[in-house]
Amino acid sequence: MRTAFDFSPLYRNTVGFDRFAALLDNAAQSSNNTNNYPPYDIETTGENTYAITIAAAGFAESELDITSESGMLVVKGKKEKTNEERKYLYQGIAFRSFERKFQLADHVKVTGANLENGLLRIDLLKEIPEAMKPKKISINSKNLLDQRA
């Protein structure tokens, strides 16, 4: 069941957050389609650094694909079918393919990935361009007094 949200109060007090409603709608939609495989963690590792850790036990590096494009990080795991026939008494390990998508904020880029002990760690860095960093604006009141005289 989808719940409609009224974002008009948000738009009265903000400028340039046009994508915000779409992001919230996508988040609500993806939470309705809960797929918990494989489990993952998102952590902050510093002031502008982050890491996503995905439990990819049983996957080789060649079976994992990581792409980043237009603010979307996509991690895919494709398990190849084996011709080996096995007779399980109990099968609890899920060797199935997966696809995980993460919406990245502006200026967040992937800096590396590492697969160790069945955990895929993707490192992210938020680099704010110099032009977008806060600047001190000086007040020039002296010129106003000179113009009046």
Score class of each variant (00 low, 15 high):
residue 17 F to I: 06
residue 136 K to Y: 10
residue 63 E to H: 03
residue 3 T to H: 08
residue 92 G to F: 05
residue 143 N to P: 00
residue 16 G to N: 01
residue 25 D to T: 10
residue 149 A to Y: 06
residue 42 I to G: 00
residue 89 L to F: 12
residue 85 E to G: 04
residue 98 F to A: 01
residue 14 T to D: 01
residue 119 L to T: 06
residue 122 I to W: 04
residue 88 Y to F: 15
residue 43 E to P: 01
residue 21 A to N: 07
residue 98 F to D: 01
residue 38 P to R: 04
residue 111 T to K: 07
residue 100 R to M: 10
residue 123 D to Y: 08
residue 128 I to V: 15
residue 48 N to I: 01
residue 83 N to S: 09
residue 113 A to G: 05
residue 102 F to E: 03
residue 75 V to Y: 04
residue 6 D to H: 05
residue 8 S to R: 15
residue 8 S to E: 15
residue 76 K to T: 14
residue 7 F to R: 02
residue 96 R to T: 11
residue 64 L to E: 05
residue 34 T to V: 15
residue 36 N to P: 03
residue 70 S to I: 06
residue 101 K to V: 09
residue 86 R to S: 09
residue 42 I to N: 02
residue 129 P to D: 06
residue 141 S to P: 15
residue 65 D to P: 01
residue 83 N to A: 05
residue 7 F to A: 04
residue 7 F to G: 00
residue 19 R to N: 12
residue 12 R to Q: 12
residue 126 K to P: 00
residue 41 D to L: 10
residue 91 Q to D: 09
residue 55 A to S: 15
residue 39 P to W: 04
residue 40 Y to A: 04
residue 137 I to L: 12
residue 133 K to E: 10
residue 74 V to H: 02
residue 57 A to Q: 15
residue 140 N to P: 00
residue 93 I to C: 00
residue 109 K to M: 14
residue 59 F to L: 04
residue 110 V to A: 09
residue 43 E to T: 15
residue 69 E to K: 15
residue 68 S to F: 05
residue 52 I to T: 04
residue 87 K to G: 08
residue 103 Q to W: 03
residue 84 E to F: 10
residue 67 T to Y: 00
residue 36 N to V: 08
residue 99 E to A: 08
residue 65 D to S: 15
residue 93 I to L: 10
residue 40 Y to E: 02
residue 75 V to W: 04
residue 147 Q to H: 08
residue 94 A to V: 14
residue 58 G to R: 03
residue 86 R to F: 13
residue 65 D to E: 15
residue 32 N to F: 10
residue 67 T to G: 06
residue 7 F to H: 02
residue 60 A to P: 04
residue 1 M to P: 11
residue 50 Y to Q: 09
residue 140 N to W: 00
residue 5 F to Y: 08
residue 48 N to E: 09
residue 74 V to M: 05
residue 43 E to L: 14
residue 108 V to Y: 03
residue 128 I to M: 07
residue 51 A to F: 08
residue 66 I to D: 01
residue 138 S to L: 12
residue 114 N to R: 13
residue 53 T to R: 14
residue 67 T to K: 07
residue 15 V to I: 11
residue 99 E to R: 14
residue 20 F to K: 06
residue 131 A to G: 07
residue 68 S to H: 13
residue 13 N to I: 12
residue 89 L to G: 10
residue 1 M to H: 08
residue 121 R to I: 03
residue 130 E to W: 06
residue 50 Y to R: 07
residue 60 A to N: 12
residue 22 A to V: 13
residue 76 K to A: 15
residue 124 L to T: 03
residue 11 Y to T: 09
residue 147 Q to N: 07
residue 8 S to F: 06
residue 142 K to H: 07
residue 132 M to H: 06
residue 125 L to R: 08
residue 40 Y to F: 11
residue 25 D to K: 07
